[in-house]
Structure formats: structure tokens, C-alpha cells
Design a protein around this nucleic acid. Structure first.
Length: 734
RNA sequence: GGACGAUUAGCUCAGCUGGUUAGAGCACACGAUUCACAUUCGUGAGGUCACUGGUUCGAACCCAGUAUCGUCCACCA
């Protein structure tokens, strides 16, 4: 027996060394596995593309959790002989990175991005991203992740940029990407548009004002934002509302409303709720999504009164350049002074917040790029089981059908409903952003004499050759590129071996919070551009929270660094604590005691090995490796049979992605059956050395996906068996 | 307003398609231990499985409803 077993297990002496051995072996790369004969060339594939962590700093406990789940599946599948590939990568995370670096520069140098200029600012971001990537990739290694580093990708590298441009052009040519002047979500703090998904809601107290525009105006309206009312062009009532019927169709000129001239047409629209407020809605087409839609239906003029900095643009001197919050009180006071105010009441309402900057979203009309989810086009592929070549489809239909028809399995399945409900209500996706870091929109304009809307437009993967074209200054929503992740990492649009061999990928493991942002977008992009599903199974994991059930956040300062945990307890202990008993879609509370318990478990395995080796290595019945005795004692037979059952159980759990149960069973078996019963009984001679060695060796195999370091370390110290090789590529027991 | 989830031991949670006396870890009590391991072992206490009704030979599990907590979506101006 190696002397190493005489002292307690020390992860620090083991983990980095073992990871180097794995790297040197090359077995993280399936090509090497095939070359060296540990995987059959024609074996079924199992592939995962790592959800790329944002290159904005360091990995947190949620990443550690996510990485563990994936590595558990990857290691298990590799051992069962699958052609197993796990592709690493990082995400440029446009908005998040942009904001983070701008904040850092502001703090350290007191400058904003405009002080630096576009070129310099983007350079600084790239430098920051490069550093973060290094940190993140290093942390992934510490977690033991068996990622194929030779295939590493970045969402903003040249290859991925090529894919993004290719798909943008394809969608543009298909009429699925269009440019339009519409009311969008504008984030005045981040100075960019954002998509509907990036809007969060926060409940706040507000005042609901009820008033009339003028004493001559017959209808009272209610609003929480009186300052926007200087931009009203209509009042809408329900068509059946008897109270206002006589006014419908009439236009009222109001010579002075808080210093502005208004022209208000009374219209009838089904969308108005006659029960709410006065039953009449002041329509502000430029500053409300819903009002914009009403205005479209009734051909109403639009009057913008607020700018990108959330300041008033009207000419009235009391309001001009005022912040909207100031203007609100000025208009309210004017209404009171004019005796036009009818009622003021405190209500609680949801206000829209930009998820990244936390700025209050200001709906503004802007000329932006959109992906149309409801426009029909002819499907060009014959590779999806439910949609035929030549069929008329929409992006929405594509996204819906592959989930409804179970081409893609979502675990836990309750999220299927959440997904389909979201798709049903999906509106066109605003994809252009006014930030500097990200994929540039592959569109060029040539000036026309008139307004921007009439510019000549060129969309292409490469810039136009002739003179006089200017590229669109905007960048793309980061999720546009993330949506291509499963196939852009595998070489598409080229007909590469990787793409043929590993796509559709088998498994995807994101948190449920990015079901819409990312999972849905991957399904959209892949079914549209490639004619395949991106993955067969999506395993949505929950969030790791602190012991009080709160999110980990900087403001609470309750973060726990996975690397600290690794240093204290070892990676294997951390991995077990993040696996056992945490089912899909469930949030978990991170408990130090649990990590400690699995550190103890690691030591238990260590000592079991010490006992088994010292009691079997000189046993005459146990020759080199494992020579099976001719007859077994009753106890031997019983325990071996019990172990077969464990193998079957654990294997079945792994096959159906119930690794959180498999890990628990193994823990319980190894400690309370193997150590406490079988080994104790072996001391009386009732259990033979073959049984001990057999159970030890096969337990190591079963535990390896969960606790790769200690199992590989112990494996390397076992007396040689005929097919001695790394545990990570040893066959899974049957 | 809509959808979904949770409610099981003091705490954190398992319990996969309904099947003996409901499980684990931590914590607790008592005891053991030079002979693999004090990062140990044994024993024990501790539960109306939120509540009400129903289906069934049988319910923590299925159905209907109630309560509390939580999440997501929509958003009324």
C-alpha cells in the first residue's frame, strides 16, 4: 500500500496535479479518445456546449453549480463509451460588460466613455474582457471541468461574428429583419434601447391625477404622468360608452395646456376599459407602447415631448429641458392653479426598470432594427420532423412546434408551459443597441437628400465596395449572437466534421432565469438558420441562494467564492454539496455544513481504501488485480448482488438526468453499507478480499463523475490491473 | 389580472410511475472506541407529511377546494 494513505486526504496535494494529468492525456478531446482507442469512432455522441459565462469578472456559486451538473453528465457519458464533447467558451455580454467597464473607468479616472472616444473605449473593454476570460477559464479548471479546451470559443470572436452577419443577412433577405420607427423601450441611464425581456418591474407609490385639458374640454382623463400629456393627440373611449358617444370623431383645439397647444381628437377604441378611471384615456402616441398602437389604428399624429435624457423637449418655457419628474409636478401645479384638477389619489403601480442599468425605462419613438416573429416565410429545410420544406411558417411557429412536439425535452417539464405561454405573447424583438461594444449591425447606408428613413440601405456580410456608404453605428443585442451558440461553436456555416458529428447537441444546462433570453433565442436561431433543433434536452437548474434564501448579490455582500470553498474543502466536496438532493428547477440554499460533510466523505473514501488495500494486497486469494474466487460465501454473494442493484439504480438515475438522486444513493451506500456494514463484517472473515476490492473499485467508478479528483487519485494508487488506464476513461460498470 | 411552484423531524431538504413500521444531512441526548477513519462508530429522542373533503384494498404522492409563502408573465392610462 502506498504510504500516501497513512495521512488524511488532502485535496490541495491532489487536485491541480490530477487536472494536469487529465490535460496531458488529451481525453477531454473526443478525437483523442477515438485515436487512443478508448472511444469507438462510430459511438453515439453526447455533446454539450457550455453556457458561456459573461466575461465580466469571476465565476460565482451559480456557475460552480452549473459546471458541476454538466461535468457530471459529461464524465458519466464518457465512461459509458459515448463520443463525448463539451465545448468551452465565454460571452462578451455586450450591455453588461459595457456598463461595468464604463463604471470602472468612471470610478478610477473620473471619465465617461465619451471622454475616451469609441475606439479607445472599446479597446479598454477588450482588455478587461481578456483578463476576465483568463480568470474564468482558470476557475473552470479548478472545478475539474472536463472541457475540450482545443475548441474554445468566444461570442465576439471572428468566427462567431461571421455567423452573426450571415444570419442577419439571411433574415434581412427573408424579410424577417426590418427597420422601423416605433415606440421602443429606451433606457435613459444606459443610453440604449432594450428589448421587452430586459424590462423589469418594480412596485412603487404614485399619484393618479384626474383632470381636464381645459374648461371647454368635455371629458376628464386620469394619468400618473401628467408631463406626458403635453404630447397627447387624442382621447380614446370605448365604442359602446354612452357617456362619451356624442364626442367621438370631434377634434378639440386647446390653446393653452401648461403652455402648449394641443389638438385632441376623440376616438373610439376597443382597448379602452370603460370601468377604469373616467373611462377615457388620454392618448400619448410617442411615449407609450399601447398609445402608439392606438395611434396606428386611428392614424393619429405623433408628438414627441421627451428626449433620450428623459427631459422635456416642448417649447413652453416652464417645461423646456426639465426632467420628466420635475415637469410632472409643474404640470400638476398648473392644473391645480387652473382649477382643472379633479382628483389626486395615491396608488401603487409597477414602473418599468432596465434590468442592467436599473434606470427607469422611457418609451420613445425611434428608428430601430427588429426581428419579426409573426411574418410568414417559406421553410427551406426538410430536417425538422414536424415542419416540412416549402411550408409557410413564422419564427413563432418554429419556436413553438419543436417544444410542443417534444423534439426538445425541457426538464422539469412544468417549464414547457411557461415557455409556450411566453411564445404565444411574443412581440417583435428589438435587436439594435446604441452601445459601442458588440457585434456591429451589418448594414450600410448611403445618404439620401431626405430623412434617414429614406437612405439607401445595403445589408451584407462584407462591406459594400463602392464609395459613400456608412455602417450603422449600432450594435446587436447580445442574445442575437448567443442564440447561435450551439452551432456557431461547431463550425457552421461550413460543413465541418464537428457540426456533423455533434449537432444537434444532446444536453443544455442553463438556469431557468434565462429560458426566454437564451433558450428561446437558441431555438429560434437554430431552427431558422440551420434547420435543426439546438439540443435534445434542456435541463433548467435553479438558483443558488444564501442560507436565508436571498440571492447572492454585491449589495448584500453575501457572496461566497467557489474558489474559497475549494481551498477549504476541496473541489470534490463542493461538487457533491452542489449535486446531492438539488432537483431540476429548484432553488437551493448554499450550506457550508453540507460542503464540510462531503469533505468528511472524501476522507471516508480515503480511509476505506486504506483499509481495503492493507487487508487485501497480501491476500493469497487476491492475485494481481482481481482474480475471482471459485466460490463465494453467502455474505459475499449477498453484498455483490446488492452492489449490482446499486449499479442498475445509479445508472438508471443518470440516464434520466436524476444525478441528484444518484449522488445521494452513492454517498449513502459507500458510507453506511460499504464502510459500516461490509467492511465491519470483513473483520470477522465473513466477507472475502475479492468482494472488498470489487466494491471499492467499482464504487470509485460510480463516484467518479461526482468526485473526479479523489477517485482518480485513489485509482492511480491501486495495484495494477491488466487494462490500467485513467479512471476518467475507464468503462462504467454494468 | 394570469400561470406555476413550495408547504414532510429543531434547521436544510429527498421521497422517481400511489404499495410494509415516512428518509437523509446537520443539530440534539446517551454510550463506545489503542487494532481503516475523532473528518469515527453504535443507540436514541424527534413528524396529524399545511388544512378540508374525495377517489382507492391502500394516499406524503391522484382529484377538488382553502390557507400561507415564493417565482414568473401581463399590466389600467
Amino acid at each position: 500500500m502506498n504510504d500516501i494513505f497513512l495521512s488524511p486526504y488532502d485535496p490541495k496535494k491532489t487536485e491541480d496535479k490530477i487536472y494536469e494529468i487529465w490535460l496531458d492525456s488529451g481525453f477531454f478531446n473526443p478525437d483523442v479518445c477515438i485515436e487512443k482507442g478508448v472511444t469507438k469512432k462510430d459511438a453515439e455522441h453526447f455533446s454539450i456546449v457550455l453556457p458561456p459565462p459573461n466575461a465580466t469578472g469571476t465565476l460565482h456559486m451559480g456557475h460552480a453549480f452549473e459546471d458541476t451538473i454538466q461535468d457530471v453528465m459529461i464524465r458519466y457519458k464518457r465512461m459509458t463509451g459515448k463520443r463525448t464533447l463539451w465545448v468551452p467558451g465565454t460571452d462578451h455580454a455586450a450591455t453588461a460588460t459595457h456598463a461595468k467597464v464604463e463604471k470602472m473607468i468612471q470610478k478610477e479616472e473620473g471619465k465617461n466613455r465619451h471622454d475616451l472616444g469609441k475606439e479607445e473605449f472599446v479597446k479598454r473593454i477588450e482588455k478587461f474582457v481578456e483578463e476576465s476570460r483568463g480568470t474564468i477559464l482558470n476557475q473552470l479548471r479548478k472545478m475539474g471541468s472536463s472541457l475540450d479546451w482545443s475548441r474554445e470559443a468566444f461570442t465576439l470572436d471572428e468566427k462567431r461574428n461571421w455567423v452573426v452577419k450571415t444570419i442577419f443577412k439571411k433574415m434581412y433577405d427573408d424579410g424577417l429583419i426590418y427597420r422601423a420607427y416605433k415606440v421602443v423601450n429606451w433606457d435613459p441611464k444606459g443610453q440604449t434601447t432594450i428589448s421587452d425581456d430586459e424590462v423589469e418591474y418594480e412596485e412603487r407609490k404614485a399619484t393618479m391625477f384626474t383632470f381636464k385639458y381645459s374648461h371647454d374640454f368635455p371629458i376628464a382623463i386620469s394619468t400618473t404622468r401628467p408631463e406626458t400629456k403635453v404630447g397627447d393627440t387624442a382621447v380614446a373611449v370605448h365604442p359602446t360608452d354612452e357617456r362619451y358617444k356624442e364626442y367621438v370623431g370631434k377634434t378639440f383645439e386647446i390653446s393653452d395646456f401648461a403652455g402648449e397647444k394641443l389638438s385632441i381628437k376623440v376616438i373610439a377604441d376597443e382597448s379602452v376599459d370603460p370601468e377604469f378611471g373616467t373611462g377615457a384615456l388620454g392618448v400619448t402616441p410617442a411615449h407609450s407602447q399601447i398609445d402608439w398602437e392606438i395611434a396606428q389604428r386611428h392614424n393619429l399624429p405623433l408628438k414627441q415631448v421627451i428626449n433620450e435624457y428623459a427631459r422635456m423637449t416642448v417649447n413652453a418655457p416652464e417645461l423646456k429641458d426639465k426632467k420628466t419628474t420635475e415637469a410632472r409636478e409643474i404640470v400638476a401645479q398648473w392644473l391645480r392653479d387652473q382649477k382643472l384638477m379633479i382628483k389626486e389619489e395615491e396608488i401603487s403601480q409597477n414602473i418599468s426598470i432596465a434590468d442592467r442599468s436599473k434606470g427607469i425605462v422611457e418609451p420613445l419613438p425611434k428608428l430601430q432594427w427588429f426581428v419579426s416573429v409573426n411574418k410568414e416565410f417559406t421553410y427551406p429545410f426538410d430536417t425538422l420532423s414536424n415542419i416540412k420544406k416549402g411550408e409557410k411558417v413564422t419564427l413563432k411557429k418554429l419556436m413553438m412546434s419543436v417544444v410542443e412536439n417534444k423534439n426538445i425535452e425541457i426538464i422539469p417539464d412544468r417549464f414547457e408551459k411557461v415557455y409556450t405561454n411566453w411564445i404565444t405573447n411574443l412581440r417583435d424583438w428589438c435587436i439594435s443597441r446604441q452601445i459601442w461594444y458588440g457585434h456591429k449591425i451589418p448594414v450600410w447606408y448611403r445618404k439620401s437628400a431626405e430623412e434617414a428613413e429614406n437612405d439607401e440601405v445595403y445589408c451584407g456580410v462584407e462591406e459594400p465596395k463602392e464609395e459613400g456608404w456608412t455602417q450603422d453605428p449600432d450594435t446587436l443585442d447580445t442574445w442575437f449572437s448567443s442564440g447561435t451558440w450551439t452551432f456557431s461553436t461547431l463550425g457552421w456555416p461550413d460543413d465541418t466534421d464537428d457540426f456533423k458529428n455533434y449537432h444537434p447537441t444532446t444536453f443544455m444546462c442553463p438556469g431557468y432565469e434565462i429560458l426566454f433570453f437564451w433558450v428561446a433565442r437558441m431555438i429560434l436561431m437554430t431552427t431558422y438558420a440551420v434547420g435543426q433543433i439546438p439540443f435534445k434536452t434542456v435541463y433548467l437548474h435553479g438558483m443558488v441562494r444564501d442560507l436565508k434564501g436571498r440571492k447572492f448579490s454585491k449589495s448584500l455582500d453575501n457572496g461566497i467564492d467557489p474558489i474559497d470553498m475549494i481551498n477549504q474543502f476541496g473541489t470534490d466536496a463542493l461538487r457533491m454539496s452542489l449535486t446531492v438532493g438539488i432537483g431540476p428547477g429548484n432553488d437551493s440554499k448554499f450550506d457550508l455544513a453540507k460542503v464540510k460533510a462531503y469533505k468528511n466523505f472524501a476522507n471516508k473514501i480515503w480511509n476505506i481504501t486504506r483499509f481495503v488495500l492493507s487487508n487485501t494486497e497480501n491476500s493469497p486469494r487476491c492475485h494481481l488485480g482481481l482474480e475471482k474466487p471459485e466460490t463465494f460465501s453467502d455474505k459475499d454473494s449477498e453484498y455483490l448482488k446488492e452492489f449490482e442493484e446499486l449499479i442498475r439504480d445509479v445508472t438508471a438515475d443518470m440516464e434520466s438526468y436524476r444525478f441528484y438522486l444518484a449522488a445521494e444513493k452513492l454517498y449513502h451506500y459507500v458510507w453506511h453499507t460499504f464502510a459500516d456494514k461490509i467492511i465491519e463484517e470483513s473483520k470477522t472473515g465473513a466477507v472475502g478480499p475479492y468482494t472488498l476490492r470489487y466494491i471499492l473499485e467499482n464504487s470509485l467508478k460510480l463516484l467518479h463523475p461526482f468526485m473526479p479528483f479523489i477517485t482518480e487519485e485513489i485509482w492511480s494508487h491501486l495495484p495494477a490491473t491488466p487494462d490500467k488506464k485513467l479512471l476518467m476513461v475507464t468503462e462504467w460498470p454494468k
